[in-house]
Amino acid sequence: MSTGISESASDVQSGRRRRIPRGEIQRQAILDAFESLLGEMSAVEITVKDITDAAGIKRPNFYFYFESKDEILAELVGEAWKAWDEAIGSYHRHAGETHADYFDRLFRVSHTVWVPRGRALVAGFQATAYDEKLRARWAELDEELYSQLADQMTRDAEAGLIAPPSDDHYRLVVTVTDMITYAFYRDRRLECTPEESARMLDSLKAVWLRAWGATDPAH
């Protein structure tokens, strides 16, 4: 995962590399340690001691950067959602983009984000069952996705490009999108092979196109 560390233009031009502050290194070490530990145990089982031992820092230093391990998980999930948004670019269908290509951009591209960040996203999805703050943040991000997809479905239906099986476009989008999110969660929790993931995506695409009412997915 990228640390988000960059160099100034003047440093690059002069051949100098920016000196990374010690605090920045320690903070990233905590994030990396927590994400690595998720490969060995659940987020609930991880202790602050586990994190500080893995990061090679003292316990007081942990609390200088984070109030709790839940805050670390929330940040990792936030970073993953940001990468998800950047990879997709827009949840609206591009001019000339077929519905089949629209699905591929939304969800095949999304899956490429889930794969390297699977541990954090799986743990984050599970944490929505007990962490109110993370649940609220995840719901907020979901709502933005639902609204934009429902708006696109309505525009396509009004243009006569699709015939959705329900006039309740918002609820239809919520149902299908939640199914896709759960499929991604299961895929990463089980660490499916690329071949198994490809079959999952093909099945989701067939369901998505039918739910969208794309009588001719090529248009």
Score class of each variant (00 low, 15 high):
48 V>I: 10
105 R>M: 13
95 A>W: 04
124 G>T: 09
59 R>F: 06
98 T>R: 01
51 I>C: 04
73 L>D: 06
118 G>F: 03
88 I>V: 14
69 K>M: 06
144 E>R: 11
143 E>R: 11
84 W>E: 08
145 L>Y: 12
45 E>T: 05
69 K>W: 05
111 H>R: 09
92 H>Q: 06
57 I>V: 10
51 I>T: 04
136 A>P: 07
67 E>N: 07
100 A>L: 12
107 F>M: 11
51 I>K: 01
130 Y>P: 10
124 G>E: 08
136 A>F: 08
88 I>S: 09
55 A>N: 02
139 A>P: 01
72 I>D: 03
143 E>I: 12
48 V>A: 06
140 E>M: 14
146 Y>I: 13
138 W>V: 15
110 S>Q: 15
96 G>Y: 03
78 G>S: 08
69 K>P: 06
109 V>W: 00
80 A>V: 10
95 A>Q: 11
72 I>C: 04
83 A>P: 03
125 F>Q: 10
104 D>T: 07
126 Q>V: 14
104 D>K: 02
101 D>S: 11
61 N>V: 12
56 G>D: 04
90 S>Y: 00
80 A>I: 05
74 A>H: 01
50 D>Q: 03
143 E>Q: 13
99 H>R: 02
113 V>G: 11
145 L>D: 15
83 A>E: 13
90 S>D: 08
74 A>E: 08
75 E>D: 06
117 R>D: 15
135 R>K: 14
68 S>R: 00
60 P>Y: 03
83 A>C: 10
86 E>F: 02
148 Q>V: 14
140 E>A: 14
111 H>G: 09
83 A>L: 13
97 E>F: 02
77 V>N: 04
145 L>S: 15
68 S>Y: 00
96 G>I: 08
94 H>W: 01
51 I>D: 02
148 Q>G: 13
108 R>W: 00
120 A>G: 06
110 S>Y: 02
79 E>T: 01
91 Y>A: 14
97 E>T: 07
125 F>H: 11
146 Y>W: 10
137 R>W: 11
107 F>S: 12
56 G>C: 05
141 L>G: 12
105 R>I: 13
47 T>L: 02
71 E>Q: 07
84 W>G: 02
52 T>R: 03
64 F>H: 07
119 R>Y: 11
91 Y>E: 12
53 D>M: 01
59 R>Y: 11
46 I>E: 00
90 S>E: 04
124 G>N: 08
104 D>Q: 05
118 G>W: 02
89 G>P: 05
60 P>G: 06
98 T>Q: 01
148 Q>N: 10
131 D>I: 10
48 V>G: 03
90 S>A: 09
61 N>I: 08
144 E>S: 15
